[in-house]
Design a binder for these strands. Structure first.
Length: 808
DNA sequence: AGCACGCCGACT
DNA sequence: GTCGGCGTGCTC
């Protein structure tokens, strides 16, 4: 019984996207579980795989045996295995990719290829170049050998029998282990043994004294702080049987050096009471329900989350909290750690591979009950989830932009169903999709309209920059904004300035011939970065020295147009020299922890102005901010994407919410060249509902979500002609399979992607709009299958995104 | 993905 | 005739 295991192998292709059966060797029978990773023979090599099921018979004869398990306990539980199937179906990804995405990256298999000299062959038979390598070690990394001789030679000689080739799976995420010296047995026996031994060594006695005091495990390092060079004495005590050596797994705790202020549950406002009641009911009765918590900025959503989680923990269950890119909001971590202490694991992209692995292990070992994290934390391997919370549910970072292209919200709801628990989506500006569902009664809508501390929403003023230009103000600051900034500086209150464009200028043009510097790899103009005197491409990372002469006409009238954060910083230094400015954008926050450092500095009032891109719009809660300035609301408005109005509204509302959250009242200035735009005007009024209704009307007219579902097929290749041929074939195939025009399905394309070329690849797309299309998934799978070969051999990329969030 | 098998052209 | 090019198909 159970002699056979079904395994999904780590070979990411469509042809191998199914299970393969393997015999379980007798010695593994009791130690192998579903959900473990194993190493299996596949073809003539070894690969990693996931055991997804056991069975007694197989339709395949001549099964091979599993070589060995990689885990002591399963890394995926039953629910996650099933969730993988769900992901593969819903996002058209390979099963193996679905499973990989659920694990911390440290557990992803990496293979190394090695060659060894075959038996009865001599080193002398090797070419001279390889000799030193083989003299040093028996097993030589293929990549190292490849650097010295052509790989064709290696292949030929391997076939001819000079080398044996082997594969080794290297496990990146090594557990951080420490060796501890532990007193042998219990205290009585320890003393007993000590008396028998009659120790003479001075150092040994010193060491024993330490153990007599605390009777606890110590590392060599710890002992050596009291007894220098104690290593050999410790080892002697081990050989005498008084101590024993043990390896303990040690966690790298990224927050270990930080003190968290302990907090208690705060009394809830009437609104909060009203809102939390149905959530607590759902927790109590273990019913799955999706709540949309719509609360204005500063209305105290977090306290509702915290107290819901408290209830869940009291019931002995676990909680998952998703926060958009958490490193952005250390304040959030603080609140959770402060309330729940070491019961919280934190997972986000700012951690190292090892740190992520350690946090994940705490979850796996049930040492924590709460996980706070970015998107992928939705796969936390809990087994008894009592609530899932997604804060800032409208954030686009919850959608993963490469395979598997999943949305954390969908996964959360699926897991909520599995665990019969509530899912809470919170936002001041819910996505249209979610709010529409709440309106239809699919989600349970909960509303909070008042700010805590009785503070008022800030007064928002729109400044027409065309008017400014007419009155002769050519600076990037309107008179109104500048005046209000001066006032804040006088009163030593703080200012937040947002400009959604990094770098110095947005494009570089020759005034003589009109030539604009473009990226050689992408269809995008280059951005000037003054600090390094370089021009950079923000899509592929291309950078070069700024040319002194125009590459087209050789004139030296090269000028910089448009405004980025760097230029604003420079300008601020000129017009408000007394102001201390912190600039925060991708360029100043790449280093680990730099983000937090900048924010802390601002919090400690070491600066008057925080200037940044949209990354400063979220989550900041500093009482001293009384002015928010949006330098140009237009940059996010004119992106060719049907969601650009929604994003602009969300961004403006979020950033406005940074002002006047506490005692001091806040003010917001929005500068724009299109002051009549509805996104800007409804944001000014803090009127989500009217914005929602207006935008819904536009979506209905444009046949966009939430009225239609979308599927986007994107094709890219180095050759323009070939790319077009492929997308044309795909589009006409899809037209034939789906009810184009007949039912409520519309197929648009082929069309050029909004950015024709990125990283030297031309891009075309086809957009499918549908309401109910039972053939969709199978049709798209056929597309992928049909072009599978071209993808491998000709370097064609086809991506299919169901419910895309970026049309680029 | 990685590898064997197998069918065609250019050489000892 | 044979070596080696890379198109095709398979991996429990």
């Amino acid at each position: 019984m159970n002699r056979i295991a079904s395994v999904i192998v780590d070979v990411p292709t469509a042809q191998t996207d199914r299970s393969f059966d393997y015999l379980i060797p007798d010695e593994l029978k009791d130690n192998l579980e579903v959900g473990m990773r194993v190493i299996v023979p596949f073809g003539n090599r070894q690969v990693q795989g996931f055991v997804i099921a056991f069975k007694e018979t197989s339709t395949v004869s001549g099964l091979k045996e599993i070589i060995e398990p990689m885990d002591i306990e399963p890394v995926l539980n039953q629910e996650l295995l099933q969730l993988g199937e769900f992901l593969a179906n819903e996002t058209l990804c390979l099963k193996i990719s679905a499973y990989q995405v659920m694990l911390p990256p440290a557990l992803k298999a990496k293979y190394d290829k090695y060659i060894t000299l075959a038996k009865d062959r001599e080193i002398g038979e090797l070419p001279k170049e390889l000799e030193p390598l083989f003299l040093k070690q028996k097993k030589v990394n293929w990549k190292d050998a490849e650097k010295l001789v052509p790989s064709s030679y290696l292949y030929r000689q391997a076939r001819a029998g000079l080398f044996d080739v082997s594969y080794e799976i290297k496990n990146k995420g090594n557990k951080k282990k420490n060796i501890y010296y532990v007193p042998f047995s219990d205290q009585a026996q320890f003393l007993n043994k000590l008396n028998q031994l009659n120790l003479t060594g001075k150092k040994q006695l010193q060491v024993v004294n330490i153990y007599l005091q605390d009777f606890a495990p110590h590392t060599v390092k710890q002992i050596e702080t009291k007894v220098p060079n104690a290593r050999s004495s410790l080892n002697q005590l081990v050989s005498k049987g008084l101590l024993k050596k043990e390896e303990y797994e040690e966690y790298r705790d990224p927050y270990q050096n930080k003190k968290f202020q302990e907090t208690k549950a705060l009394p809830l406002t009437d609104e909060q009471e009203l809102v939390i009641k149905p959530i607590l009911d759902s927790i109590e009765h273990s019913t799955h329900e999706v709540f949309l918590l719509h609360g204005v900025t500063g209305s105290g959503k977090t306290e509702v989350y915290l107290q819901s989680i408290e209830k869940v923990m009291k019931n002995g269950k676990e909680a998952i909290v998703l926060v958009p890119e958490i490193s952005l909001t250390p304040q959030m971590v603080e609140r959770f750690k402060g309330r729940f202490g070491n019961k919280v694991a934190v997972l986000h992209s700012g951690l190292s591979l090892g740190e992520k692995y350690d946090e994940w292990r705490k979850i796996q070992r049930k040492e924590v009950q709460v996980v706070v994290g970015a998107r992928s934390a939705i796969f936390a391997p809990f087994e008894n989830i009592g609530i899932i919370i997604i804060d800032e549910e409208h954030e686009t970072s919850y959608k993963q932009e490469d395979n598997p292209r999943y949305h954390a919200r969908d996964v959360a709801i699926e897991r909520g169903k599995n665990h019969h628990c509530p899912v809470v989506l919170g936002s001041a500006t819910p996505s249209l999709e979610s709010f529409a569902r709440a309106q239809k009664g699919v989600y349970h809508l909960l509303t909070m309209q008042k700010r805590m501390n009785n503070s008022q929403l800030p007064v928002v003023e729109i400044v027409d920059m065309r008017e400014e230009l007419r009155t002769g103000n050519r600076s990037m600051f309107s008179t109104a904004l500048l005046e209000k900034m001066r006032l804040r500086l006088e009163r030593s209150e703080q200012i937040v300035l947002m400009l959604n464009r990094r770098g110095y200028s947005s494009f570089v043009m020759c005034r003589n011939c009109g030539y604009v510097l473009k990226c050689p790899n992408c269809d995008i103009s280059l951005t000037y970065h003054k600090v390094t005197d370089q021009v950079k491409c923000h899509y592929c990372g291309f950078e070069m020295r700024t040319p002194k002469q125009c590459p087209e006409c050789s004139s030296n009238h090269i000028r910089f147009f448009g405004t980025g954060t760097q230029k604003v910083e420079e300008e601020l230094g000129r017009i408000l020299p007394e102001a201390r400015v912190i600039r925060m954008d991708v360029d100043t926050t790449t280093r680990k922890g730099s983000h937090e450092k900048l924010l802390t500095a601002f919090q400690e009032k070491k600066a008057d102005i925080l200037l940044g891109t949209q990354m400063i719009a979220k989550g900041l809660d500093f009482p001293n901010i009384t002015l928010v300035g949006v330098l140009s609301a237009d940059s996010s408005l004119h992106i060719p994407d049907f969601r650009s109005s929604e994003r602009t509204f969300q961004l403006l509302t979020q950033v406005s919410g940074r002002a006047g959250r506490h005692e001091l009242p806040g003010e917001v200035i929005i500068q724009t060249y299109t002051p009549e735009h509805y996104s800007i005007n409804f944001a000014k009024e803090h009127d989500y509902l009217t914005f929602y209704q207006y935008e819904m009307m536009i979506r209905k007219r444009g046949q966009y979500p939430p009225f239609y579902y979308l599927a986007l097929i994107n094709v890219s290749h180095e050759n323009l002609q070939y790319t077009y041929t492929v997308i044309e074939k795909i589009t006409s195939f899809v037209r034939g399979q789906l009810a184009d025009g007949k039912g409520e399905t519309l197929i648009l394309g082929p069309a050029v992607s909004p950015i024709l070329k990125i990283k030297n690849r031309y891009r075309y797309q086809c957009l499918i709009k549908y309401k109910n299309e039972p053939n969709l998934i199978s049709t798209l799978k056929q597309v992928l299958e049909h072009f599978q070969e071209d993808q491998v051999k000709r370097g064609l990329h086809i991506s299919i995104d169901l419910n895309p969030y970026s049309m680029m």
